[in-house]
């Protein structure tokens, strides 16, 4: 048997090193080289992780939906699609959490308050809770196929529901608040290096996401294989019991 350590391959290891280098570069550019914003001062630097993390979360939830749809529509219903959906969902929840936390830190520094009932904030919070629910359903137990079917239907429901929630929250705010709190990007006049840092952040976080999904997906595959192995042992035990 080939020696297998962890869930990595040489490709993911290279990807991992690339991600580390890019994140280090992002830290240098974001915290050191790039200039302070004229209006916001140093608080603008939060943007370099805030924007990439919500970007990544959208990619993640999109991937969850696509994989769920492929799982449900596929003829052979490969569980690999379900595992990709689940891995992306977990990491998406993580990145939404990061963007909510960094966002409220930025809000505290800029607006003097952690939370405002801005449409974008509110619907992001709903996004977070919706996928926490999705993860809870994945944990319900049963066989792998039961888990896959339930959670993929739920993921597709979530994709339907999110635009509706976003739309209604936007409608709700627009009616009650004349000057909506502007999104951070609009206020900031981005110079070249700031733009580069932001772009670097987007690429680095996307690659980080890919790296995390690959590993998490393999870990899930091992978990499934482990419980299948447990099932094999249990079947053998039952047969022996019957024979005895």
């Amino acid at each position: 048997m080939a020696r297998q350590s962890g869930t990595g391959t040489s490709a993911t290891r290279r990807l991992g090193i690339l991600v580390i280098l890019m994140l280090a570069g992002l830290a240098l550019c974001g915290l050191w080289f790039s200039a302070e914003d004229v209006v916001q001062g140093s608080t603008v630097r939060i943007m370099y992780i805030h924007v990439p993390s919500i970007w990544t979360a959208y990619i993640a939830f999109g991937l969850t939906a696509v994989c769920s749809a492929v799982y449900l529509s596929g003829k052979n219903r490969s569980l690999a699609w379900d595992r990709f959906a689940g891995a992306a969902g977990e990491i998406g929840v993580l990145f939404v959490a990061v963007s909510l936390v960094t966002g409220s830190m930025w809000g505290r520094l800029t607006w003097g308050t952690y939370w405002v009932w801005d449409a974008r904030l509110t619907s992001t919070a709903f996004l977070f809770i919706t996928y926490v629910g999705y993860l809870a359903v994945r944990q319900l137990g049963g066989t792998h196929r039961q888990r896959a079917r339930r959670s993929s239907v739920l993921a597709l429901l979530a994709i339907l529901e999110i635009p509706l929630v976003h739309f209604s929250v936007t409608l709700w705010r627009s009616l009650h608040q004349e000057a909506s709190v502007a999104n951070p990007n609009a206020k900031v006049a981005l110079d070249g290096l700031m733009l580069f840092s932001l772009f670097l952040g987007l690429v680095a976080f996307t690659l980080l996401f890919v790296w995390l999904v690959l590993h998490r997906q393999r870990a899930m595959m091992l978990e499934d294989a482990f419980s299948d192995r447990g099932l094999d042992l249990a079947i053998t035990a039952r047969r022996n019991e019957a024979g005895a």
Binding site: F126, I129, T130, V132, G133, A136, V137, L140, G141, R150, L154, L157, E161, L164, V165, F167, S168, V169, L171, W172
Partner: peptide, 27 residues
């Protein structure tokens, strides 16, 4: 129906349902 299928996990229903009905509450 989903929460009922998951036996003994009735606590799941509010978590799943309340975010979805936000548009109804608002509208």
């Amino acid at each position: 129906g989903l929460a009922a299928g998951a036996r003994g996990r009735e606590t799941l229903l509010p978590l799943l349902l309340l975010p979805v009905v936000a548009p109804v509450l608002i509208g």
